[in-house]
Design a protein around this nucleic acid. Sequence first.
DNA 1: AATATAATACGAAAGTTTTCGTAATGCAAG
DNA 2: CTTGCATTACGAAAACTTTCGTATTATATT
Lengths: 126, 126
Amino acid sequence: MASEKKYNPTESELEILQVLWDKGEATVREVHEVLSNTRDTGYTTTLKTMQIMTVKKLLERDTAQRTHIYSPLIEKEKIQRKLLDKMKDGLFNGSASRLVMGALNDQSLSREELKELRNFLDKFEE
Amino acid sequence: MASEKKYNPTESELEILQVLWDKGEATVREVHEVLSNTRDTGYTTTLKTMQIMTVKKLLERDTAQRTHIYSPLIEKEKIQRKLLDKMKDGLFNGSASRLVMGALNDQSLSREELKELRNFLDKFEE
DNA sequence: AATATAATACGAAAGTTTTCGTAATGCAAG
DNA sequence: CTTGCATTACGAAAACTTTCGTATTATATT
């Protein structure tokens, strides 16, 4: 039990990860381009954060070219799980079903989605 | 559109809120008692944080007695919604059904819970 | 009333995250 | 080759969060 990593990405790190999960890989400029739609920070800020993330092993980068290419080292699913777990324990009294129902309640699902979900649920009963 | 509040409780603030949501109201000592099961910080730390939260309008307090009594000013449901929303947008590509299915996947539900959930789902179809 | 006890108030230090200015470096035109 | 441009490197400031030492105040006990 040695290498269990404990890295909780911070808020801005998560934003960067989201772009990279989406694109698979990207340059700082590309990431920054996307981010600047919703936030208002300079290019070097994004750069610095991504460099720090590389040190933290959240990202890796290919420095073969002058313009470095970054990609995520941590899986989206892992973060999903971790955050869902935290929500379950902290906000839904540790009950998974309450978490799911909470999500159902808060988010409004289309008829389509409901059907999809129902099918999905069927797989759980065997 | 003036008074839309933007308060994201921090990590430790959330821990305190959880105790207060649970108890309804409590003194600093009571909150600190609970917190000290899982963390290892001094009484005055909890006190200070709760005082700050009061300024931020996350809590209110009754100072009638020497020992102040705190209660949450923000609803658990609101935070649930906000965090679920954030997860949906950031981690599930904005799809509510994927969020729900993700939760179903990650958390393991008992047969009981599944039945409960199915009933719950039925209410959404009319 | 004096003392001990328990609570709040205050302010600042320590820790973490976010931000960016400036310098250095490589590349591509001209 | 030299000038201009885009990129990375570096370091530190700014902003925010967490922590706690110490002072002050109120209450209860003797």
